[in-house]
């Protein structure tokens, strides 16, 4: 009956968003009077796996098959379904990510599960099972009543702040039968900027738009990001023009992010841009036009030239 959490690894380490999911899952387990089990696939050492205990998981099922070392949504869904069956889990929790999206959909299909995407609060289990989620790209919220026997909750970043405790989870090897058909997609090559902070995981984001004038000017943005340990993001025209990689594009048609701090530089604040960033905790806008619409959705604003303001902010951060 335990609550099952699908946790992800990035280069052998538990992703921060997954730590959040484990903590959330453990809270749900508490509400339901049961325990929390994490299912983790891919290579990682035992200490790292056992650290799921710090966030409230009492057990970790580690899917050890080497075929799972490459992230694979379809194969992971087979593994998670097997884990849910073994544990008799009725509630499955995970943090939204591109891998989790691919996994969750297949899993929902397998288990005929009721699914809430973009969950932003703990469920209300006093009468049924109701979860609050973000809809219309952050423009509204829905209270979803999940009626299916098995429920899947995909949580958004910053839904809950994990507290760490001094505990470690019992790690068990898990070797379910894999399904050949799940390996029908062959990965030919992967291009990934390693070492950088992943945008969906980042607590701080420095984002820039067409106001930067050209890709050669991005060092002012990157310097501030580096000083803050922030990820970089951009507006749609910037990725359309190939000034920045598409994986940095945020908004209605790009990534939806909810960091603690979003700093928008030379971005006008079109409604489609706001849709992807308006659930950030604190929004700072830097724009030379005092009438830029973005200021209406900001917490702090500076009317000024990014080429003057950003280097000064970078220095101020370094001096902190």
């Amino acid at each position: 009956m335990s609550v099952l959490i699908f946790a992800e690894l990035d280069e052998g380490k538990l992703k921060k968003s997954s730590q959040e999911a484990i903590f959330y899952g453990a809270k749900v387990a508490e509400m339901l009077g049961t325990s929390a089990t994490a299912i983790i696939a891919g290579a990682a050492d035992n200490t790292e796996l056992a650290s799921a205990g710090k966030f409230g998981a009492t057990k970790v099922l580690h899917a050890t098959d080497a075929k799972l070392n490459e992230p694979n949504g379809m194969a992971y869904a087979t593994v998670v379904a097997a884990a849910a069956q073994q544990e008799g889990s009725k509630v499955i929790v995970l943090a939204k990510s591109s891998l989790a999206d691919a996994m969750t959909a297949r899993l929902a299909g397998k288990l005929k599960a009721g699914l809430a995407a973009n969950v932003i609060e703990l469920p209300n289990v006093s009468n049924g099972f109701v979860v609050k989620s973000s809809i219309y790209t952050g423009k509204a919220f829905a209270f979803n009543d999940l009626k299916a026997d098995i429920k899947i909750l995909a949580i958004k970043k910053n839904t809950i702040t994990p507290e760490e405790k001094d505990a470690s989870a019992a790690v068990e090897a898990f070797t379910p039968t894999l399904n050949e058909a799940d390996f029908a997609i062959s990965v030919k090559s992967t291009e990934k900027s390693s070492g950088d902070i992943l945008l969906p995981e980042a607590d701080f984001v420095v984002s820039a738009g067409r106001g930067l004038k050209g890709p050669e000017n991005w060092s002012v943005v990157e310097d501030l990001a580096k000083a803050l340990h922030a990820a970089t993001a951009c507006s749609k025209p910037v990725s359309d023009l190939d000034w920045r990689p598409h994986s940095e594009h945020v908004g209605q048609t790009g990534l939806k992010i909810s960091p603690n701090l979003y700093i928008a530089c030379g971005i006008s604040g079109a409604i489609q841009h706001l849709a992807g960033v308006n659930s950030s905790k604190v929004i700072v806008v830097i724009n030379k036009d005092a009438d830029a619409p973005f200021f209406k959705s900001a917490d702090y604003g500076i009317v000024g030239d990014v080429f003057d303001v950003l280097p000064r902010l970078t220095k101020a951060v370094q001096a902190l």
Partner: peptide, 23 residues
Amino acid sequence: DKLSTVASYELPAPRGAVKMIPA
């Protein structure tokens, strides 16, 4: 099979007023 329904909707609380800082 409808595995979920929406019981109700809600709009986000408006952000407080922006604090402007001179350049």
